[in-house]
């Protein structure tokens, strides 16, 4: 990059330096308090923390999977429907982002509780006899997290589909492809980048969740951010909190790097 091209990026780089790089380096410093790796040994050596890390990744993966399952068709429909419907779609998809996490979570409690709207409908309709356990467990956490993270999947997919030249789709159609084959052979491969972008964002954001799992998981679903928060606010063991954060950060970067490899433009032979 020439220096001339570099200058406009300076404010952003400064911002990144002061608000990201600097705190991260300080955090790493904290974690190596006294020049020892003891806190890392604890983070990676004790079953408790490893299990929570594993849980966290498992949840993040599942959330990503469900966001993809719901978000791809949604983003796809919004990109291909009329502007009016697209706007309606946008409002509904973005609504959770404009609502506070507590309001959202209580709304889910009203909907999904044992005596909630959803269960009452099912019971009244005679579909189930006893209320389904939708809340205060893993299911509740999934529903809550997928709901709030869905926009991060829908928007990149929407963008990717919109960027696609309509003539390409028309060409495929004209050359004899059915809607199904157009989807598999044209839309899907050409929107893979959007899918990966959305998946990476959703996955990374999932890793840091703690309010939603704490409230909708009935306390049983423990993610690493909950433990880090505990170490920061309750036990005041900052070096250990820093070590846990650093491990999480390293895992996250690893996942990101892996995703990058997959996002290389597909050179199908």
């Amino acid at each position: 990059m020439s220096m001339r091209g570099f200058w406009p990026a300076v404010p952003a780089l400064l911002l990144l330096f002061f608000f990201f790089l600097f705190p991260v380096v300080r955090m790493l410093g904290f974690s190596l308090e006294g020049g020892s790796f003891d806190w890392y040994a604890k983070a990676l050596g004790e079953g408790l923390y490893l299990r929570v890390f594993w849980n966290t990744f498992e949840i993040a993966l599942l959330v990503t999977f469900f966001c993809l399952l719901l978000g791809y068709p949604l983003g796809f429909l919004m990109a291909t429907t009329t502007p009016l419907w697209a706007t309606v779609g946008f409002i509904f998809v973005l609504l959770p982002l404009w609502t506070s996490v507590l309001v959202r979570t209580y709304a889910w409690m009203v909907l999904l509780g044992r005596n909630g709207v959803f269960n009452r409908l099912l019971i009244d309709a005679g579909i189930v006899e006893d209320p389904l356990p939708l809340l205060h467990n893993f299911t509740g956490v999934m529903i809550g997290m997928v709901h709030v993270l869905l926009p991060y999947m829908v928007l990149p997919v929407y963008g990717a589909v919109r960027r696609l030249d309509p003539a390409i789709v028309a060409a495929a159609e004209g050359l004899g492809a059915s809607s199904w084959r157009i989807f598999w052979r044209i839309y899907l491969p050409l929107t893979l980048n959007g899918i990966f972008a959305g998946a990476v964002i959703v996955f990374v954001l999932s890793l840091g969740f703690y309010i939603t799992p704490a409230l909708l998981g009935g306390g049983r679903v423990i993610m690493i951010a909950v433990l880090i928060e505990q170490q920061v606010r309750e036990t005041l063991n900052w070096p250990f909190a820093a070590a846990l954060s650093a491990v999480l950060l390293a895992f996250t970067f690893a996942v990101y790097a892996l995703a990058q490899r997959f996002t290389r433009p597909q050179e199908t032979a």
Binding site: Y106, R114, G116, H136, L215, G218, G219
Partner: peptide, 19 residues
């Protein structure tokens, strides 16, 4: 124990909702 609560408001709400 179906819910391990984490905010002070939760137990009251859980009783109210008959959760």
């Amino acid at each position: 124990v179906t819910v391990w609560w984490s905010t002070g408001q939760q137990p009251a709400q859980l009783l109210l909702d008959k959760e």
